[in-house]
């Protein structure tokens, strides 16, 4: 567990890509795999390597995510992207001041955070479930307590099971099958929080999942997703672990849902493709 004032220096190695049945003649791609510079994390170094080699270009998108684009025009049978970063994370003051639940419904605030209150493709939930939510989790005046209660309820109803869903799975589908991965638990939580009028957003990044690992020991980590909710300020919470966000979390991008921040997306012209999967290795070096 992290203590106030502590920090961590993490080295991340994230490999992903696609392999084609046959070859791809050309492809156009966007990678969102570069950690953000934020008050709670300092990016010391970040490098993206693409194979086959391609000229890279960078921009900041609507959600301020660092996007690296590249296109390939020679025939190739696989595309591999390696993101390496060294990030120093700082833990935040746990005593976050917060506005009351009631003030969330002031018109001005509702207007300002309209995008994070509206349902999206992956964060839509049926009214039946939302009604159930209100029964089981009557909103309290303290937003943090309400959020905790929602997450407890979600973790009670949906179990983390690797490979149980698709990248396109919606909150409704996940709820029905009662299983999901971190992306899904995040979508479900966001759907529920939004229905209560709590602006929420999707955070993608990394988690060094072994707090007991020693310095220099490489841990197979995760491409991870969690929630940030608004309570006067944006606060992070991890529905998969039921914990807060600490120095073992590294933030890459924030959006309304997964669709706004896919780590690697692209189009190509060629035989059927499938994902190379994702390998994330994190080493705490300080």
């Amino acid at each position: 567990m992290s203590t106030p004032g502590s920090s961590a220096l993490l080295q991340i190695r994230h490999v992903t890509g696609f392999v084609y049945d046959g070859i791809a003649e050309s492809s156009y791609n966007e990678a969102r795999m570069t950690p953000l510079a934020l008050p709670r994390q300092r990016v010391i170094d970040a490098l993206l390597t693409v194979h086959p080699k391609a000229l890279q270009s960078t921009y900041r998108d609507y959600f301020d995510t660092i996007v690296t684009t590249f296109d390939l025009h020679e025939a190739h049978d696989r595309l591999e992207v390696l993101a390496e970063a060294t990030v120093e994370t700082f833990s935040e003051n746990p005593n976050q001041p917060s506005i009351t639940f009631g003030s969330l419904h002031v018109a001005k605030l509702v207007d300002t955070y309209a995008e994070y209150l509206a349902p999206t493709t992956r964060t839509t939930m049926s009214t039946i479930v939302l009604d159930e939510l209100r029964e089981h989790v009557p909103p309290r005046d303290d937003i943090h307590e309400t959020v905790q209660a929602v997450i407890t309820w979600v973790r009670d109803r949906v179990t983390y099971v690797r490979g149980s869903t698709l990248v396109s799975s919606t909150a409704q589908e996940v709820w029905a099958q009662r299983q999901g991965v971190c992306q899904d638990l995040t979508h479900v939580t966001i759907a529920l929080l939004r229905s209560l009028g709590i602006p929420s957003r999707y955070v993608s990044g990394y988690l060094h999942s072994d707090a007991d690992a020693s310095i220099g020991e490489m841990v197979v980590g995760e491409s991870h997703a969690w929630v940030e909710y608004f309570c006067g300020d944006w606060v992070g919470i991890d529905p998969t672990n039921g914990s807060g966000i600490g120095v073992h979390h590294v933030i890459v991008a924030k959006g309304r849902e997964y669709g706004d921040v896919p780590p690697l997306k692209g189009i190509y012209n060629g035989g059927p493709s499938r994902s190379l999967g994702v390998v994330v290795e994190i080493t705490r070096v300080g």
């Binding site: 959600f63 509702v110 309209a114 995008e115 509206a118």
Partner: peptide, 18 residues
């Protein structure tokens, strides 16, 4: 103009920012 009008419009093109 209400922000929701813009952000919920299917023609609001987030890719156009910048």
């Amino acid at each position: 103009v209400p922000r929701a009008l813009i952000t919920s419009s299917p023609n609001f093109c987030r890719e156009a920012k910048g």
